[in-house]
Design a protein around this nucleic acid. Structure first.
Lengths: 370, 370
DNA sequence: GCTTGTACTTGAAACGCATCAAAGGGGCCG
DNA sequence: CGGCCCCTTTGATGCGTTTCAAGTACAAGC
């Protein structure tokens, strides 16, 4: 049970310590038979390099850390997937930590990763980003995901305002006369969606718009109760288009409407926001705006690589990635989970490599339909 | 940008190196004012302990590693959640790695975690567990999740056979005369479910049973096409009860049946297996057997703790955790996601702490209904 | 005033490895 | 046979911590 170390391998193989180290890190420097001998010995002894010592002596780890607020949110998983694939492509490992909706934990893992001399760290931060400037001073490249403020630093976010705009424009296209927006805009992301909706409808005073708060956590149950409430209205009081600020909300709303005998999309159209696989699979298709989680993760890693490879990287880089509206049904849902293709065609970005000037992005070419 | 180290803090604070270390690890040993001084200096300088050096010198990390086959499977996430919460409870960190359905990567991360001197490592392994015995020799506590073979070692798994039995008994209770089981039993877990179904139906030759393979990956699309196929049969050829070996399959089946004008559960009852939140949210409720992912993660960490705390831990411990059948609808789905309560009441275990004798477990007290 | 004890603080040793300047060992040429 | 060069291997050094035996300062007790 005693751990076997590099010196044990060296002794056993009859070579020196440095040679074993070379076998691990610069195999091309060894004579093939020496290498073979050492590898056999390593396997026979079950030697496992001590990563800590390795890091300490070598200075680098070739791995990234990713701190996520929760594990059970589809969007975070898309980010993780994108980040993972991109990281592997560059030969880096990706380690994920779950902050479990807890600021303290988030901070804890962030420091942990930095202290492990990770080559870079990414966070999808919780609501209050007060500490970001402090973290930005750390000697490890860091990228903030799914958040977009004007602080100097590296940020990659979905364009939430555009998401709201897209859905609203969809509603206009479909001839909506009365729109109800459902959801508690507790987080910046949701607030921006509402903003986008309002902006898109600013020129259309003829369209009635109504925003309904939805319980504290935007759950499907919240959606359901509001959906039920809408269903009970007199027919002429009912909206013809409902926007759930969240797919989960939209899914609850649809259930309620259908349960109460209202046809979706026959009488009322319902759209969501999130592109959340967790909320798909219903037998009623749901049109939703998918924030490109996979792309955000990918781009995050690319930004990390950029900082690592450039000796004098830009101080600040803000990226916004456009979204795509799409219709998902139970059947197509799992096909869409295919992570290689998610929202790729809709990727748009413009970054400012100098200063903190904010990037512009417009979503175009959307294959949106109900 | 130069990293500040403990000696910098010591010099700046005018104390010795060892004192700063004590401030970090044994604050109770310091005079309050010394502690305060050091903490201020640490904050002022932005000092971040080098975890690698720390580990190397101290020998332990108080953190666990978890290697998951994929991130986008609800069951894995439940495991991660359970493991996370239990780990935090003991003051341990949890780091998660995504093996991305790749044996090589799985192995890679496993070795990585072991090499990082993690206090313990957990894996939810891919199909072929050939390497397990080799890994079990490693000097780090390891627990295998969601798999149950007779190799010596620590295993925590859902009782998949029981899941099949539960669903089949459900079918019997509901008066099924003709059952169709849909799914490709490519993995051990699914094979066991089928086995459980057959066992439960062994005494009922009057019930017709049919197993239909379902494409390579058990997708919703696979379910859909088989559902459609079932719908097209003559009425007297159609089953009255369909079991999807996977919730995703079941969800596809339901969609197809409903699309083809067959009422669910009016004409055909459909049940799933997985308790998969990803597959909930449909407007048709789905009865499913939920493997207690959260409990498996929890138990896994507890087993790790056991190995850590006992100087002479049992060599082998196999645990099976019972499952619960439940009906989920779009609306109750997110409430069920509440991770504190998942299948807790149905937890059953009996472990053999001596030898490799296999544990018995029976699912009782099930609140199963359609 | 001296001893003993208590409460902190110190600094050297060790953790396991990567690195790199230096040494070793052939082969080739003159 | 000597000198040179190239290919391979060597082993001392240091990475940033923790730990712990030894040290210091101060107070109380005699």
């Amino acid at each position: 049970m005693a751990k076997v170390k590099i010196s044990d391998v060296a002794r056993e193989a009859g070579v020196s310590l440095g040679t074993v180290s070379n076998a691990l890190n610069h195999p091309e420097k060894l004579r093939p038979e020496t290498l073979k001998l050492i590898n056999e010995t390593i396997n026979r002894l079950g030697y496992l390099p001590n990563q800590s010592a390795r890091q300490l002596a070598g200075g680098t780890t070739k791995s990234f850390g990713l701190v996520l607020p929760r594990l059970d949110h589809g969007f975070s998983l898309q980010i993780a997937s994108g980040a993972h694939n991109e990281a592997r492509k560059h030969g880096y490992d990706l380690l994920i930590a779950n902050a479990d909706n807890d600021d303290i934990l988030e901070d804890h893992y962030l420091r942990y990763f930095m202290g492990t001399q990770m080559s870079g760290v990414m966070v999808q931060p919780m609501a209050s980003p007060d500490w970001h400037p402090a973290m930005a001073k750390m000697p490890v490249p860091i990228v903030h995901l799914d958040i977009h403020c004007l602080e100097p630093g590296y940020y990659v976010a979905a364009d939430n305002e555009a998401q709201g705009r897209i859905i609203a424009e969809l509603a206009i296209t479909r001839g909506a006369r009365h729109i109800v927006v459902v959801g508690r805009a507790a987080f910046m992301q949701l607030t921006l969606r509402v903003l986008g909706i309002h902006k898109a409808l600013a020129m259309r005073p003829d369209i009635k718009i109504e925003v309904i708060d939805a319980g504290e956590w935007n759950t499907a149950a919240d959606g359901y109760s509001i959906g039920a409430q809408i269903a009970e209205r007199a027919a002429d009081e009912r909206p013809d288009f409902v926007i759930g600020l969240t797919d989960v909300l939209a899914s609850g709303i649809i259930s309620a409407l259908v349960d109460k005998g209202i046809s979706v999309p026959g009488q009322i159209l319902v759209a969501g926001c999130d592109g959340n696989p967790l909320a798909w699979s219903g037998s009623v298709p749901l049109t939703t705006v998918a924030p490109p989680g996979y792309e955000i993760g990918r781009k995050g890693v690319q930004l990390l690589m950029e900082q690592i490879e450039n000796k004098a990287p830009a101080k600040t880089k803000h990226i916004r990635i456009g979204s795509a509206a799409r219709t998902v049904t139970a059947v197509t849902a799992t096909e869409d989970i295919n992570r290689q293709e998610i929202v790729r065609p809709f990727l748009l970005e413009r970054a400012s490599t100098q200063g903190s000037e904010q990037a512009e992005a417009t979503a175009i070419n959307l294959g949106a339909y109900l």
